[in-house]
Amino acid sequence: MTAITLTVNGKTVSADVEDRTLLVHFLRDQLRLTGTHVGCDTSQCGCCMVHLSGRAIKACTLFAVQADGESVTTIEGLAAKDGTLHPVQAAFQEHHGLQCGFCTPGMIMMATDMLARHKNPDEDKIKKELEGNLCRCTGYLNIVKAIRAVAEA
């Protein structure tokens, strides 16, 4: 076991973790932040995406010990304290960017990361940036539409 201290959604968290614990399991099982999902578990689908010190990463492909001293933002950390949705969350709702919702937390964490890196991504850019996020329901059209809407706003 290793003692780690990190910031999760703005709060300092200290915990003992087994060295082999993946960040996604630490978030879900120890911190009970179950918005971050495990889809493929093989680094392909992006359902587990969170921000590690400001960058979107796959939490199934990082050990929790690697996040020691860093800051992590999960889907639970996006909305305002009073519950007002983050603009990307609101746009996914508005534009029906989800059906079953399983991929949605990862899609939204990728979308917020993408919008931070690109000023006004066009449809083609958005599709390329979503390379590492798989959705089995929507056919992506409304996901792209939702992200475009935020980019344009």
């Binding site: 680094s43 992006g46 995406m49 590690l52 960058r55 979107a56 990463i57 796959k58 492909t61 990082l62 990728m110 990361d113 993408m114 940036e129 390379e131 590492g132 996020n133």
Partner: peptide
Amino acid sequence: IGDPAVRHR
């Protein structure tokens, strides 16, 4: 290479 999250690591 890969996708943005892979390129971030």
